[in-house]
């Protein structure tokens, strides 16, 4: 038996989440005394995975492997999993991995546990801690299935290096049939997405209008951060919906979250509970965000931000 992990790549390079799921997969393989198999799609060079303890890389090739399809990718991973007698599958919390996980669960007759935040406390039966109530609580879940899919919460386990010399093979799997066709993809290039970012800079209604967002963008660019916003900001069209963070928007699990002019409503905080360090800049010392933050500045964003930007430029240059 073996542990399998789906290591996502894009344009020939692995995503950061691939190294995190591989790190977790390695720890799980050690815990259960099994080998770790990584599955890649249309990724000829799997050598980067040697830093994370992978024993075997199976690269799936063939026409369909070039474009993501949840149905086709799930079927292909299921085929590898059956061949390698896999009993534990680890996937990330990326949009694509979360998309295919339930399809894979049906194919493998497996239980699927999403938002997992730690290694299992027991492997028989498999017992996992996961976040729920939009990060306002954790639950402990016990599976009664012999095969299990673990959806790892991003940034919950971290990346741990373990050198190995993986065997690399390629495989052509059967292509699942699907009537679904991707007709176009619109993707911002050159900016970091909230899902991949180590640092997220977020603006709320306190920034008064879209014309002031250059401050948020400049701060983000100095820090190599993604930009985000509160719900009213996206509802009013100041920023795109994809930046809306919170209970009804995106979850964020970055190392650092800087909130500027965001009051800290419970629904906003629900989305950012998993961030490691939170900084708030708000003119109102009574703003609820101060109760949730690690560091705070009571001040006017239009005073504080230009200074912070200048000081950080100097800091980064040093």
């Amino acid at each position: 038996m073996a542990v399998l992990t789906y290591t996502e790549s894009e344009n020939g390079s692995f995503k950061k989440s691939a190294f995190e799921v591989a790190s977790y997969g390695k720890a799980l393989a050690d815990q259960t005394g099994q080998k770790l198999v990584a599955v890649t799609f249309n990724q000829e060079d799997g050598s980067a995975l040697s830093a994370y303890g992978v024993d075997l890389v199976v690269n799936i090739t063939g026409g369909f492997s070039e474009t993501f399809s949840a149905k086709k990718f799930a079927a292909a991973i299921a085929q590898v999993a059956s061949e390698k007698e896999v009993n534990l599958v680890v996937i990330s919390s990326s949009a694509n991995s979360k998309y295919l996980a339930p399809l894979l669960a049906v194919k493998l007759t497996a239980a699927y546990t999403s938002n997992v935040v730690a290694l299992p406390s027991s492997t028989e039966p498999l017992t996992l801690k996961r976040s729920c109530y939009t990060s306002k609580a954790f639950s402990t879940v016990t599976s009664n299935q012999p095969i299990n899919i673990i959806g790892l919460s991003s940034n919950a386990f971290g990346i741990i290096e373990t050198q190995s010399t993986p065997e690399q093979t390629s495989m052509t799997t059967d292509e699942a049939s699907s009537s679904m066709v991707v007709s176009s993809v619109e993707k911002v290039t050159g900016t970091i997405t909230i899902a991949d970012a180590d640092i997220v800079v977020s603006g709320g209604r306190g920034l008064k209008g879209p014309e002031n967002w250059h401050l948020v963008e400049e701060l983000a660019s100095i820090l190599g951060a993604a930009t985000a916003c509160s719900k009213p900001v996206s509802d009013m069209g100041w920023r795109p919906h994809s930046e809306h963070v919170g209970q009804t928007g995106k979850p964020v699990a970055s190392n650092l979250y800087i909130a500027i002019g965001v009051s800290g409503a419970i629904q906003h905080l629900a989305g950012i509970n998993s961030c490691k360090v939170k900084v708030v800049i708000n003119i109102d010392p009574e703003a609820p965000f101060f109760k949730a933050a690690d560091y705070g500045i009571v001040g006017d964003a239009f005073d504080v931000l230009p200074k912070l930007i200048e000081k950080l430029k100097t800091f980064k240059a040093a």
Partner: peptide, 9 residues
Amino acid sequence: IDGGKEIVT
């Protein structure tokens, strides 16, 4: 999708 959207039929 992460960082954008995809149109499908």
